[in-house]
């Protein structure tokens, strides 16, 4: 299995209407500062050799002003051992609840879609629901309601419809793209009326 190129993956998400944060590859600290143009950004190092970025200290959050250049040089230093690598700059998403939306190809049942409480809580609480693709609207709603954390991730039901649509779009993408072996949108930051995938990874 190999990592599908980040911007190719992003393009695919766009095609299915799945929103992800503004991102750009940056080759220098100045480049990153230009992308930020005054607002807060995130810098991430992407390499086949480091699949769990946050654990390896390869994600730098909340960067602004001189912090951008310090973070860039630190990532560059860490990247030497992980070559080939790239550094990506992203706009900071407004805060919200972090969820995971994922997919994988099961040898028996084909494409599966997953929804769970995301970010750092994924592996601690293992609060997730799973279905076979393609899913119906009812299946998507069941997936949301099955979560123990449903009141948290839906803001007491307010963002349920948003999540149902997102799941339908992801199911559609998974079903129509055979090459996707595994998909992680983790985290997806959800607010009452909007969301975006902050990190995305497709394995082919």
């Amino acid at each position: 299995m190999t990592l599908y190129e980040y911007f190719e993956a992003k393009k695919l998400l766009d095609k299915y209407g799945i929103k992800s944060v503004d991102s750009k590859y940056v080759s220098s600290a100045e480049d990153a500062e230009r992308f930020a143009s005054g607002s807060k950004i995130v810098l991430k190092l992407i390499s086949e050799k480091a699949l769990h970025k946050s654990k390896a200290g390869l994600v730098k959050l909340n960067l602004q002003g001189p912090g951008i250049s310090v973070a860039f040089h630190d990532l560059e230093r860490k990247g030497k051992a992980l070559s080939p690598y790239k550094i990506i700059a992203q706009k900071m998403a407004p805060s919200g609840v972090e969820i995971i939306v994922g997919g994988r190809t099961d040898p028996q049942f084909g494409k599966l879609i997953l929804l769970g409480l995301g970010g750092i809580y994924v592996e601690v609480f293992k609060d997730f629901s799973l279905r076979v693709c393609p899913i119906t609207k009812q299946d998507a709603l069941d997936m949301v309601n099955q979560l123990k954390s449903k009141d948290v991730v839906t803001y007491g039901g307010k963002s349920s419809a948003l999540l149902v649509n997102l799941l339908m779009e992801v199911s559609d993408m998974l079903s129509k793209n055979d090459f996707i072996k595994e998909l992680d949108l983790n985290p997806v930051v959800v607010r009452e009326d909007s969301y975006e995938a902050v990190d995305l990874r497709i394995l082919e």
């Binding site: 994922g102 994988r104 099961d106 592996e123 799973l130 595994e182």
Partner: peptide, 22 residues
């Protein structure tokens, strides 16, 4: 040997359970 969080969470038993539930 899962590469993603999704694969680590959703193994063989979970896939079966998902089908039963669905």
């Amino acid at each position: 040997a899962a590469h993603s969080h999704t694969a680590a969470l959703a193994g063989n038993y979970e896939a079966h359970e998902a089908v039963f539930r669905q």
